[in-house]
């Protein structure tokens, strides 16, 4: 039960690939990676959650925090989610209205920022 977070630059955007489970113990790794990217002025982020098996409210908090941070400096943070169980976590809290959520990474990257 661990999480791996890697990032790659695609055009103007930075794709963050997250694999594993995001909970109270693993969320700090995601928070640090996102904070470090934003510090290095990667502010147009696409966070790919298609390989995430589980996410709790701590993970949501991390994503909300990163979203607020990039928006204040003119950036954006989009999510890629293709599993109902992950989408449900966002729907329950109404965070679906806060994030732009795409069903695939291609769709997210095709979207004009």
């Amino acid at each position: 039960m661990d999480v791996s977070v890697t990032s790659r630059v695609v055009g103007d955007r930075t794709v963050v690939d997250v694999t594993g489970e995001i909970d109270v113990y693993t969320a700090p790794a995601l928070r640090e990676e996102l904070a470090s990217l934003i510090d290095r002025e990667h502010t147009d982020l696409v966070v790919d959650l298609t390989a995430v098996k589980f996410m709790d409210s701590t993970g949501l908090g991390v994503l909300v925090g990163a979203l607020k941070k990039v928006r204040t400096i003119g950036g954006d943070l989009r999510l890629v989610i293709d599993q109902e169980k992950i989408l449900k976590v966002f729907r329950i809290t109404a965070l679906t209205q806060v994030f732009t959520i795409h069903a695939s990474i291609d769709e997210a990257l095709a979207e004009q920022g």
Binding site: V64, I92, T93, A94, L95, Q97, V98
Partner: peptide, 10 residues
């Protein structure tokens, strides 16, 4: 009648 979480920007 599910509503949003408290403290989110909605």
């Amino acid at each position: 009648h599910r509503g949003r979480a408290l403290g989110i920007p909605v």
